[in-house]
């Protein structure tokens, strides 16, 4: 098991999401950067859907009271075991009573810690993903105990010890489709949205990424309709909001763009203050 000594700034257990209850207003949740979380699982021989610990920088400080094999993917960060920096390119063997800590992320936003066999926090409505009001809490807290699968000789053999984890790639362009209301925009508004340079706001979280631009477009509200992670909404006052994994299931702002799955992973890696553009897929 893992004891949380320090929770870090924004850490939670996530899998690929809570499917089947969005019609009851339950957000999808799940990891922000699917590609990186899945990579961290596969290298350990876990199914890609196994629950992992997601964290932003500065990360948590974790005490492992039993041996475990872990992998860390996503935002570039150093990993220390009992204070000693270790190689993060491949799986890491953690011995009994080890303290794991992380350095500041130097590229990207979200990191993923996978554990051989998975993190076994309680499954609620078919998912282990944290979401406040559905699970006990939205984030891990100091003193929390995270159950993990017990390591066996057999499971140790499933680990791809020689493989290397993919390095995070940061993009300046985020892939999008036209959203349901895109066709209702004027040509000038469309151009402004597609040609503008955007900056990610530090107020962003797992519900929404706020983006700023100098070319404000204002779009009237719509009759409340379905939204999903990756929906890009514009408010009547011209604020642009990209919905993330913990977003509500319906919304009343105009849905001008919709990120592709690849575009979604791309935007999760852009740090606050960094700039990007949208690249329209047809």
């Amino acid at each position: 098991m893992i004891e949380v000594q320090h929770p870090g700034i924004y850490s939670s257990v996530q899998d690929l999401g809570r499917f089947g209850n969005r019609r009851f207003g339950v957000p999808l949740s799940g990891v922000m950067d699917k590609e990186m979380a899945i990579a961290a699982n596969l290298i350990l021989g876990n199914p890609g859907s196994t629950a992992v610990l997601e964290f932003a920088s500065p990360g948590p400080r974790l005490f492992f009271s039993k041996p475990a094999i872990i992998a860390v993917a996503g935002a570039a960060t150093t990993v220390r075991v009992n204070g000693e920096e270790v190689n993060t390119e491949s799986p890491i063997l953690v011995e009994t009573n080890s303290l794991i800590s992380f350095g500041r992320a130097t590229a990207g936003v979200w990191s993923y810690l996978s554990v051989k066999g998975g993190i076994l926090s309680p499954e609620v409505l078919g998912s282990r993903s944290f979401f406040p009001g559905v699970t006990k809490s939205g984030r891990i807290e100091a003193g929390d105990i995270l159950e993990v699968a017990t390591l066996s000789e057999l499971s140790t053999q499933e680990v791809a010890w020689g493989d290397k984890l993919p390095q995070i790639e940061i993009y300046a362009e985020v892939q999008v489709y036209p959203g349901p209301e895109f066709s209702m925009l004027s040509e000038i508004q469309k151009l402004a949205i597609l040609e503008s340079e955007y900056e990610v706001s530090p107020q962003s979280n797992r519900m929404a990424t706020l983006v700023h631009t100098s070319r404000i477009v204002k779009v009237p509200e719509i009759t409340t309709g379905p939204v999903q992670p990756g929906t890009v909404q514009v408010t009547p006052s011209g604020k642009m909001v990209v919905l993330m994994r913990d977003a509500q299931t319906t919304g009343g702002y105009s849905r001008v763009l919709q990120l592709s799955d690849i575009g979604f992973s791309q935007i999760t890696r852009i740090s606050p203050g960094k700039k990007f553009r949208f690249g329209l897929l047809q």
């Binding site: 089947g20 019609r23 309709g225």
Partner: peptide
């Protein structure tokens, strides 16, 4: 279909 989301004048299917 994994799931549907209903609203006033629209329905999304995932």
């Amino acid at each position: 279909i994994n799931e549907t989301v209903l609203a006033y004048t629209s329905l999304a299917a995932f």
